[in-house]
Simulated scan of single mutants.
Amino acid sequence: MFLEGEVNWTLIFGITAVVGYALAAVALWFAVTHGARHASASDQLDIVQKVAESSDRRLFETMNAVPVAMVETDSTGKFVFANRAAHQLLGRRDAELLGLRFHSATWGITFPDGKPIPADLLPSARALRGQTVRGFQHLMMNAATRKKMLVSVTAMPIENERGQITGSIAAIVET
């Protein structure tokens, strides 16, 4: 058998120690090289996040500087974004506006002759069906001042990378 008779325990313990040190050295090398990769990836992720936040902030500032009322809806027609000009034109702040639907009766939307417009003919509804609408004119009411105004609306669908419509963007100008 293996351990019968004279055994050189010094040799066995020595070989075991050498193998243990070799395994420890490999583990230490692996930890150091992968730790550097982890730190590098973490640093790169931080940089990417800072660039994305900067881009988001710059886009938001640019959208708010545009003098045309810009509103974005989700796929159900609820407002998810409105720039500063839209707040002024529509007479509502973000807290009051976001979550409302574009065809809400509170807007008092009618054709220029005063006839009500069916919700499915409104530019945002058509954009949510994939159409691009340019220069659709209708009357609407500013919620704060209750003033009726003639506006021209251009609306387009927002699509994801697979071509599915995820919302709409509309530009509204008082004419």
Rank of each mutant, 00 (worst) to 15 (best):
Y21A: 14
V32D: 12
G77W: 02
R126G: 00
A41I: 10
V7D: 03
S75L: 10
V68G: 03
E53C: 13
R162H: 12
R146E: 09
L90M: 06
A39D: 11
A31I: 12
E72F: 04
V32A: 14
T166H: 02
R93Q: 12
D43T: 14
L121M: 10
L100C: 03
G135P: 02
K148S: 10
W9N: 08
R37V: 15
F2K: 15
I47R: 14
F111C: 11
W107P: 01
S104N: 08
L122W: 02
V7P: 04
F102K: 03
I172N: 02
A155T: 00
A86W: 00
I117Q: 05
L28A: 15
Q49F: 07
L100K: 02
P67W: 01
P123H: 00
E53D: 15
V68P: 04
V18C: 09
I172H: 04
A69H: 01
S42A: 15
V151K: 01
A143P: 05
R146N: 13
T145D: 06
M63P: 01
T62G: 08
L122Q: 03
I15L: 12
S42G: 15
M149C: 09
N83G: 00
W29D: 09
G20P: 07
A31P: 06
A27C: 13
F102G: 03
A125Y: 00
A144L: 14
S124M: 14
G5P: 00
F136Y: 11
E6W: 14
L3A: 11
V51T: 15
G114C: 03
F2L: 13
G108F: 04
A31D: 14
S40E: 11
L3W: 07
M141F: 06
F136D: 05
A171T: 07
T73E: 02
E174H: 06
G14H: 05
W9S: 07
M140H: 06
P123I: 02
A171N: 07
A127H: 00
R162V: 08
L139N: 03
R37F: 11
A119M: 08
A31C: 11
L98M: 05
G20S: 12
V7Q: 04
S104Q: 00
L3T: 09
L98F: 05
F79A: 00
R57I: 08
A82L: 06
P118L: 10
V68L: 10
S152G: 07
T110Y: 00
K50Q: 12
F136I: 07
K147D: 07
A155F: 00
R92K: 12
T73W: 01
M63H: 05
G167N: 01
L28E: 12
T16Q: 14
G77N: 07
G167A: 03
R93S: 10
N64P: 01
I172Y: 02
N160Q: 11
G35F: 07
L97W: 02
I117P: 01
R57S: 10
F79D: 01
A144M: 15
A85Y: 03
I158C: 04
